[in-house]
Amino acid sequence: MLPFSAAADRNKDVILEKLTPLLAGRRHVLEVGSGNAQHAVHVTSALPHIRWQCSDLAENLPGIAARLADEGNAHTPPALALDVAAGPWVLNAGEAHDDIDVIFTANTLHIMSLDHVAGFFERAGETLTRPGDIMIVYGPLKYGGAFTTESNAAFDLQLKSWNPVSGIRDFEALDAMAGQAGFRFVSDQPMPANNQLVLWERSR
C-alpha cells in the first residue's frame, strides 16, 4: 500500500484551486518536503504545463518513489534528496534545474527548527534568482505572536511535546526572513483547517 496522508488528501482540491491562478504561466515547481507526493500527482494531473520536482530527506524518498511509480506522469521526475539544513541545495541530479520559477512547501515549517526555517528561506533565495519568481508556503501561522484559533494553540503544544524545536511560526518572522532573502510579500489567503497560503515574489 502506498504511504498516505489523510490531511493532504482532504486539502488537495482547495490547494489546487488556489494554486491554479498562481501557477498560470509558470514552468517548474520545486516542492520542499514532498511527503507522500500527493500534491505532485494531483497538481500535475490538473495542470500539465507544470513540471513538479519533489524533494525530501533521503529517508523519505522511497515512499515518494512508490507513489510516482504508481500515479506519477511525465511531469513528475524522480524526487531529489534535499535537506534544508544543508546548503547550497544540489538540484542538478543529471538534468538542468535552472528553470525553476516556483518553490512550494506545505506543512513543513512548523515541523522544522527555527534555524532550519531560516535555512529554508536562505536556500530559496539562492534557488529563485529571477525577479518575479515566487515562493508559496502552506500551513498554520501565528500573527503578532497570537494563535488564530484555540485548536492551533493546542496543536502547537502537541508539536512541542513531540519535538521542542517544532512549533507554529509567526508570520512576521517568516516575512522578515523572506525579505532578507530577496522576496516581497504578495498575499496571505486563509485555507481550511486553520491553515494559510502565503505568497512571496522575488523582488531583487
Rank of each mutant, 00 (worst) to 15 (best):
F4E: 08
D13M: 08
V14S: 05
L22G: 06
E31F: 11
V32Y: 10
G33P: 02
G35S: 13
I50L: 09
W52M: 01
N60I: 11
P62S: 06
P62K: 06
I64A: 07
I64Q: 08
A66H: 03
L68H: 00
A69P: 07
A69D: 15
P78W: 07
L80S: 10
D83R: 12
V84M: 11
A86N: 08
G87E: 15
P88V: 10
L91Y: 05
N92S: 15
G94Y: 06
G94S: 10
I100N: 12
I103D: 10
F104N: 11
F104L: 15
F104G: 12
A106P: 09
N107Q: 10
N107L: 14
N107P: 09
L109R: 12
M112A: 14
H116R: 13
A118E: 15
R123P: 06
P131W: 12
G132D: 10
K142F: 12
G144D: 11
E150C: 00
S151G: 01
A154C: 02
F155Q: 02
L157I: 06
P164Q: 07
P164D: 11
G167R: 03
D170Y: 14
A173N: 13
D188I: 01
P190C: 05
M191F: 03
N195Q: 01
N195I: 07
N195W: 01
N195S: 08
Q196N: 10
